[in-house]
Nucleic acid binder design. Sequence first.
DNA 1: CCCGCCGGTCAAATCGATTCGAGCGCGTCG
DNA 2: CGACGCGCTCGAATCGATTTGACCGGCGGG
Lengths: 378, 378
Amino acid sequence: MGRSNARPTLARVAELAGVSVSTASLAFSGAGPITAETRDKVLAAAGELGYSGPNPLGRQLRSGRSGIVGVVLGDQPGRAFRDPVAVKVLDGLVDVLGTEGLGVLLIPGVRAPAGPRSTDGEPAPAPAVDPLLETAAVDVAVLVWGVLTDDATLAALQRRDVPVVVGEGSRVEGAPLVALDDRSGTAQAVRHLKDLGHSRIAEITLPLDADERSGPVDAARLAQADRTSTRHRLAGVRDEVEPVISWETPASLVEHGRDAATEILGAWVPETERPTAIVAHSDLLAAGAVIAARELGLRVPEDVSVAGFDGIDLPWLSPDVLTSVHQPLQAKGAALGNAVLGVLAGDEPTCTTLPVELVPGTTTGPVPDVVRPADPQD
Amino acid sequence: MGRSNARPTLARVAELAGVSVSTASLAFSGAGPITAETRDKVLAAAGELGYSGPNPLGRQLRSGRSGIVGVVLGDQPGRAFRDPVAVKVLDGLVDVLGTEGLGVLLIPGVRAPAGPRSTDGEPAPAPAVDPLLETAAVDVAVLVWGVLTDDATLAALQRRDVPVVVGEGSRVEGAPLVALDDRSGTAQAVRHLKDLGHSRIAEITLPLDADERSGPVDAARLAQADRTSTRHRLAGVRDEVEPVISWETPASLVEHGRDAATEILGAWVPETERPTAIVAHSDLLAAGAVIAARELGLRVPEDVSVAGFDGIDLPWLSPDVLTSVHQPLQAKGAALGNAVLGVLAGDEPTCTTLPVELVPGTTTGPVPDVVRPADPQD
DNA sequence: CCCGCCGGTCAAATCGATTCGAGCGCGTCG
DNA sequence: CGACGCGCTCGAATCGATTTGACCGGCGGG
């Protein structure tokens, strides 16, 4: 009973077919020379035994590869999926890797400690890395959403000698990086607004670090910015203009963009001093800003212009089309996939920077006359 | 050079520590009795060699389990992620499995053939199943988005003897099922509308099958409905009312809901015959309907009421809050996770049906007076 | 006529760990 | 004083396949 119940192995198939295990293996893998007659004999035996093909585990041990690429999600797994940008990138990644027969394994990153930074006892010395990070059999890990300074996830991976590919972060020693021309992106957006005559420009930023703060960004806070892509987007804006106000959000979500824009547009005491344009670090934030403006009775773009970043589809913003800095999302996923392939092939790590392109929509327009300074500007 | 360059193995650590391989294994796994002194010796040797812990592949082969659960995505990997419902369920699933140390592997389902149902040559006898389906080392596969009759994905999995867990579909022999009380859900929504005085109710449906059609649903088409949950939602509506029109959509997306509602509301020649309420099979479709109504200059809910299904957050619909049949999304993911755990533990397959609950929002209201029949009703 | 090559098959080593049962000191109980 | 039991360690089998090199008969070229 013991073995009759268990799933048949290649050895038993070979036995029944009257050939050696090695020959049976050849019959399935197709590698190496084998007579059609022999193969048929093996296949017939397999059919009789209900053998469903070589066990992947055995193959993997032998080859030393699992064929699995780990994708490390941010601290909250759910949040990663709520972001259309992440989703599109993931999509492209799955696509490229899928054609190579590689699978994508979702790995939650470090789990945030239960209490929100409680100062009692130890300062969370063990950041509770997800068990999968420690044990999963992945050939490569992809850190799609960047690397923080002093990243516990990265540390765990490196301790395990798992090769890493980084997207959107700062360079990691020995790991390929797929970056975006963030700085040029926001700079282009602001230049576009300036070309339309705007000068009082407000900014809605991506999170500066993992603290999930929300509120105005001053010079001190600016210096603390930890996330590379946020830093670059901040810098790009400042290449062109000093924003009249810059508002930090806890995450790239519509509701946070709405809250930020409500603060920015609503709290301005003399209406003539209100910003005439908003540049947001993401489309989701920008969409929130458009909604907030509508709720405040402001017309877009007649009263206030809004520009975003990412170039995602926002069908529900209809009939408006967001002016946005488009990034090649699918291509970013593909680039990450190729970087993974490169690592697997043993190539030298390279650093790719993807281009961005401003695509004007209907949410930006000329600066309103009403608030244009009456005095003849030199 | 050969071995000095290669990653160290447990055997070499044991050798250096002067103990046997079995003892070294004990030092890492923690199973079985071992002296603290011996363990330290092994750990020290490991540190010296740069040994980064037991290779998962070896462990997996021995245990016969990979610790990986495959989640089969629909035909288009990207579409699965665009659906907030799917994302939340996936989120709950990852959460439950993650705490058990199980990983979630994304598997694209059958790849649709290149040409759209070209009738030349063979009728696509080889539906091009994704290579991962054939080769990935998964302990269980989850078909989150149901099973079609004659499902190639399911067939491939069964051929490989991979146990399966089904969500939202029809019962599969020997596999646990996590279902939803779809029928009661749409029935509740329609009853709510009837209680508000509506009688001319239109319906926007989920896809009836994989054909991605869009247009009115007649009795013949109704009979073709292939997807279990769609069938139940259709039935639930008809338990309460015969819709004045039922419009099929190719996918649960805002834009399709918008298109459908534009047809439904716009093409009605005598305005007094226009439906006063729309029940949609999903929140995304319902949101599209709200947008379409607004675009047509109709007020929601004064001129037309809209009810959805799912209960997802729609911050951008603000200030409206969709009336919707809420389903326990996170719980559904958790239920799927538990079903997976059950399969792994060898339990008998069970069938869970999750409850739904109508939560009224601001998008449904009393039937408008204008179009209410002038003659005194009974 | 003989050597060497070639297509096909097989035996055995290998991948890296887990685990069962045996062995071995040593303390304790009878 | 001898036997039993307990705690720790070790040897060896096992998981399931891949792959290298040997082997073997037959055929063509020198």
